[in-house]
Structures are given as C-alpha cells and as structure tokens.
C-alpha cells in the first residue's frame, strides 16, 4: 500500500515537472528578464501593548451606567522604511524572490490625549518613593525613535501569466539591526525637563535587533520586461523578536508599500 502511494506521488511529481517544462517551453516570454532592481518605500504600524510599568499611575475616567472603565494611555507606532532590492524571477515569471538592504525608523509614542475639554491630557509617573514621600510627575508623552539597517527577503507569487495588471501574494521577512535610538519625555511643565534622564531610566531600553515576517497582497502594473509599479498591502506583519522595543511591546501590525522595479537587461 505504501509503495503504491509512493509511486503515485512520484508519478504526479513527474507530471507536474513535465507540465511545467512544457509551459516554459511554450511560453512566448521564455526569454523574459529574470533580474530586476527595485526601490521600495512604505510604512507599517503595529498594535502596541504596554509593558507592566508599576510606576505609572492608573487612570479611570470613564464611568457610565453601572461600571468603571479604565482610560488607557494612548500607544501609537509607525515605521516608515525605504529599501533597495534585487529581484530574481523564475518559473514562468510567477515566482519573484528579492533581497536587498533596508533603512527603517520605528517611532513609538505613549501619551494621554484628552478627547474633551474637561479631560486631562497628561498622566502621572512616580519617579521616586521613600517611606514618607512620593514624587509624581505629569507627563504628556514619551517618544522613542529607533533607526535600523536591515535585510529584507521577500517571495512573491503571482498565479497569473504575465500581463499588464497582475495580482500577487507575498511572504516576506526582514532582519533589522539598530544603528541609533532616542527617547524623549514631554513634561506637562517644561520646567521639569531636568528630570528627563531619570524618567527615561525607568523604562526598558530597546534591543539592538528585531525581525518581522509579513504576509501581503499587491498588484503590479506594467508589461513584462518593462519598468513595473507595485502597490502592496501588508497584513499581518508579525514581530518575531519579543522585547525588541523599549517603551512597549508589539505583536502584529500591517502597512502599505509601493515599489518601482526595473529590469536589469531591457530587451
């Protein structure tokens, strides 16, 4: 039984290979360019999860009906990037594999935005405490900006034969090394800026490396062997490295990107 199954699978594999070979031979574009060069830019944003910071005073401003609802500090993130990539196309121009170099910056912001006139737009952080004294500071926002140089690796697959308008799917990874980082505190009273370093010392520092994996879908405009333009949506982007960022934790997100690709040997 096992042998029969194995033979059946082997036969199917041979048929697929043969059919593929036939397709490539019958493809009028079999001499299509296989190497492309592209520039890509876009942004991603991630859902933000606060670390458990015991030194941030809780807030509960929402009350209606019969319950209390904690007001949350607002957490925001966005990560613009630009990449230069080389791309290799194979298997009847259906698989596109690309790699290159990537610059990205990762911006994180935590703050409290008052959504009405009688809400405060700050939160309290306890900087120090002794048995009989505690020191709170009113904070409007805390920012973290990290800069990375990375290597993106993408595999794109289009189930359609070359045409001007092509839908494709993507699986991508990127590996990013931190080259610079900056955190800053926006105090409610600017006179308190003298405590900025002490406040920042309370927070975790970002690690030097983070990686993500991304699924995406996009459309490519342009003829084969000609410059192509792509617009692509990323979702989900999964952060593969826990505790990579200082202010907060990210798990998944999404984004959008556009790219311009040129065949390296135009025929």
């Amino acid at each position: 039984m096992k042998r029969t199954t194995l033979l059946l699978l082997l036969s199917m594999f041979m048929i697929v290979l043969y059919s593929q070979n036939e397709n490539e031979n019958s493809n009028p574009n079999k001499n299509a360019n296989k190497l492309y060069f592209g520039i890509e830019t876009g942004f991603r944003t991630f859902n933000s999860l606060s670390h458990e910071y015991a030194f941030i005073r809780e807030e509960a401003s929402y009350y209606y009906g019969y319950g209390n609802y904690y007001s949350k500090i607002t957490w925001m993130s966005y990560a613009p990037f630009v990449s230069l990539k080389a791309e290799y196309r194979s298997l009847s121009d259906k698989f596109w594999v690309s790699a290159g170099v990537n610059y990205s910056s990762f911006h994180s912001l935590m703050g409290r935005s008052g959504n009405s006139q009688n809400q405060t737009d700050y939160f309290y952080i306890m900087l120090s405490q002794s048995q009989n004294e505690s020191y709170y500071y009113r904070i409007k926002e805390i920012k973290e900006t990290n800069h990375y140089i990375g290597v993106p690796i993408d595999i794109r697959y289009s189930p359609f034969l070359p045409r001007f308008f092509r839908l494709y799917f993507k699986l991508g990874f990127d590996f990013n090394l931190k080259v610079a980082a900056k955190q800053s505190v926006g105090f409610y009273q600017s006179e308190m800026n003298k405590h900025e370093d002490a406040i920042l010392d309370l927070f975790d520092q970002p690690n030097s490396f983070y990686a993500t994996s991304t699924l995406g879908v996009g459309i490519q405009l342009g003829k084969q062997n000609k410059p192509n333009f792509r617009i692509e949506a990323d979702f989900p982007s999964l952060v593969l490295t826990p505790k990579a960022f200082g202010l907060m934790e990210y798990s998944f997100g999404g984004g959008a990107r556009i790219s311009f690709v040129l065949p390296l040997n135009i025929k």
Binding site: S61, Y64, Q119
Partner: peptide
Amino acid sequence: LFIVFALSCTKQTDLSDSIYI
C-alpha cells in the same frame, strides 16, 4: 452612540478623582 456620548461626558481625571482598581 450611547457609548460615544458617555465617553464625551467623562469627568476630569486628576488626583482628586476616584480610581477604582
């Protein structure tokens, strides 16, 4: 709409407010 209205009527949160944990 009720939730939005309720949220827009929230009290000021400050040290004098009560915070239920």
